[in-house]
């Protein structure tokens, strides 16, 4: 690497002033000018790939959203904000937005609560705990398509295990995925079932990271179990809470595979999420421009919610 010589630390610079309160021990601001080149070289492969295959395409999509764009059509008329106006008048968009938000809010809350509870139950390093944690975590690494397929069969009222057991218990089997009321809660259940191990692992690590002295100090002050949890555990795992909430929210807002495999958006659009709607408009109905507009609304929504979450958790660690 030829650049390396330019990066050698000269004593003069090392002794240079640090920006006041600068938290990082990495060298000072003064050296920025001579420093930027190697950084770009290091980042080049990743940035190139992300730029060409993610950022540029998403801008292309923005461009499409101002046209009545359709793959291969002879004319792609410019419609300005037409697609966006159409979207706000389209009941299927509002339906999909509602479904997506309901799915996201309920599953994220359940995942955080159950993930934390499970982590509290299994935080010890004993063998039983460790094995159980592995078992809980396993569904996370299985593809959603496989999980959707298996649960779809399991929940089938006539031939699935769940239906079979309900009948063996003398109850009427329930059509989980065919019922307009139950389909979305069922999808949420499967999604929570899959990801609870992920949340649990995050929280176990966070719980183990809370310094034991704090608890000792708390106990000396006469704090009970609940106070310890409320005043020491929860603040101690706040960064993890933020991370878990953000990751799970982003994932949930993008939910598609499960819907696609298990319900296809039905019955009566009760599980028609935004990405499923994008998929349908873009690939089934060939309204690429319109699908692009929905995509951008979803993208904006994800950004907005992520920023809000950063705000709520008062996360000011962006150095």
């Amino acid at each position: 690497m030829t650049t390396s010589t330019t990066d050698r630390v000269s004593p003069r610079v090392r002794g240079g002033a640090r920006p006041p309160g600068g938290p990082t021990p990495v060298p000072s601001a003064r050296r920025r000018r001579i420093r930027w080149q190697p950084a770009w070289l290091f980042m080049a492969p990743s940035l190139l790939i992300l730029g060409v295959f993610v950022l540029y395409p998403i801008l292309r999509t923005l461009y499409y959203s101002f046209f009545d764009w359709s793959v291969g059509a002879a004319v792609q008329p410019f419609v300005g904000f037409g697609n966006y106006i159409k979207l706000f008048q389209d009941p299927s968009f509002w339906n999909a937005l509602g479904v997506t938000l309901e799915f996201t809010v309920v599953s994220v809350v359940l995942l955080i609560v159950l993930g934390l509870l499970t982590a509290l139950a299994l935080q010890s390093e004993g063998l039983a705990s460790r094995i159980t944690r592995s078992v809980f975590f396993f569904p996370t690494i299985v593809s959603l398509a496989t999980i959707g397929l298996v649960w779809k069969f399991l929940l089938d009222p006539d031939i699935g295990l769940v239906g079979g057991v309900t009948k063996a218990l003398g109850l009427a089997p329930v059509a989980w995925l065919q019922s307009a009321q139950l389909a979305l809660p069922t999808l949420i259940f499967v999604s929570v079932w899959r990801s609870v191990g992920f949340a649990m692992i995050l929280f176990v690590a966070a719980l183990q990271g809370v310094p034991g002295e704090r608890y000792e100090a708390g106990r000396l002050d006469g704090a009970g179990r609940f106070s310890l949890f409320w005043y020491i555990t929860l603040p101690g795992i706040r960064p993890t809470m933020l991370f878990a909430t953000m990751m799970l929210t982003i994932q949930s807002l993008q939910v598609f595979d499960l819907v696609y495999v298990m319900t296809g958006g039905g019955p009566l659009y009760r599980t028609d999420t935004l990405v499923n709607l994008i998929y349908r408009d873009g690939f089934v109905n060939f309204e690429t421009g319109y699908a692009a507009a929905i995509s951008w609304v979803l993208f904006a929504l994800i950004m907005l919610i992520s920023l809000l979450q950063l705000r709520i958790f008062r996360y000011n660690d962006v150095d």
Partner: peptide, 19 residues
């Protein structure tokens, strides 16, 4: 880089394919 996490894959599928 973090923002790219927020892009659902289906959204960029057609432009990526054309590229």
């Amino acid at each position: 880089v973090i923002a790219t996490l927020m892009v659902p894959f289906q959204v960029t599928l057609i432009p990526v394919f054309i590229q």
